[in-house]
Amino acid sequence: MAIIIFTDLDGTLLNQDDYRCDAALPVLKELQAKQIPVIPVTSKTRQEVETLRQELNLGDPFIVENGSAVFVPLDSKQFVLSAKIEREGYQLELLGCTYAQARQGLAAVATMLGERLRGFGDLSEQEIGQLTGLSEQEVKRAKAREFTEPFLTPDRVSQQQLQQAVEAKGFQVVVGDRFSHLIGSGAGKGKAVRWLVRHYRSPKAEEKLITVGLGNSPNDLAMLEAVDVPIVVPSAKAPHPGLMGRGWQVASAPGCQGWANAVVSVCDRLLA
């Protein structure tokens, strides 16, 4: 049996409060020893994910900016593809749009709504740091957008109005309390997961492939729907209500401890 693990980062592999993943470190090492890929699926940028991959010694593909792009290391043996785009040591599969297109799209949506929409490209590093609490280096990595544009969620526009305007301009939006994300129409965490699974090549042709996904919020819904074994990682209070009522497994603890417990349990069961 072959296993692939797809995982959200903030609030899932990483704790929501301190962004640490100490409890998951021994499990990650064991997964690497067993050649089980651990693939981040996140709204973060490539630079943000690359920093984490270096810290955790991960070498598998990863999915960034809400499913806008898949990066596969050129030396990957488990994921075989002939992508037309190579970028800094990776094969790149672009599912969404470019950053320039996202910026143009945000301007068009703002004009349609008659509202000023301020994206990351309009905000200084100091402003983003004050709004997010990120350090100077973290802000630089978060601002290194390649495919999507986060913007301050407007107060005077309803979520329905915002979504309608975005769709009218040929984009998608992930609406958040403070920031929303404008993404290309072809992007999506679920789409990216399915695309990567299609390009998996097991060392043993007869092996059955099982995909596992872990997430903590409705932004992970499409990813969880795309895997064989979806697992909800709860917050300190409870699982997100937007992910409940589906019969999915809920991890026994929040953050990295819950992630570690769930991954050990599912791998022991599948590989028994």
Rank of each mutant, 00 (worst) to 15 (best):
M1W: 08
L9E: 10
L13K: 09
D17A: 12
D22F: 02
D22A: 14
L25K: 13
P26Y: 13
L28H: 00
K34H: 11
Q35E: 14
S43M: 01
K44M: 08
K44V: 08
K44Q: 06
Q47D: 15
L52M: 10
L52E: 08
R53F: 15
L56C: 02
V72C: 06
P73L: 02
L74V: 15
L74P: 05
K77W: 03
Q78R: 15
V80K: 12
I85D: 11
G89M: 00
Y90K: 09
Q91H: 13
L95W: 10
T98N: 10
A100L: 14
A107K: 15
V109T: 07
G114F: 07
G114R: 04
E115A: 15
R118A: 15
D122K: 08
S124T: 15
E125G: 13
E127C: 06
Q130G: 13
Q130I: 13
L131P: 09
T132A: 00
G133Q: 08
A142S: 13
K143F: 09
A144G: 06
F151K: 09
T153V: 05
P154S: 03
V157P: 04
Q163Y: 05
E167S: 13
E167R: 14
K169E: 15
K169Q: 15
Q172P: 09
H181F: 11
L182W: 03
I183M: 15
I183V: 14
I183G: 11
S185H: 14
G186H: 12
G186F: 11
A187R: 02
K189P: 10
G190Y: 10
A192F: 02
P203D: 01
P203V: 03
A205C: 07
V212T: 01
V212F: 05
P218T: 04
M223K: 07
L224A: 10
A226K: 04
A226Y: 00
V232A: 03
A236H: 12
K237G: 02
K237R: 13
H240Y: 11
G242Y: 01
L243V: 03
G245R: 10
R246C: 00
Q249K: 13
A251Q: 01
S252C: 12
Q257M: 12
Q257T: 14
G258R: 11
A260V: 06
V266A: 00
C267L: 01
R269I: 01
L271A: 11
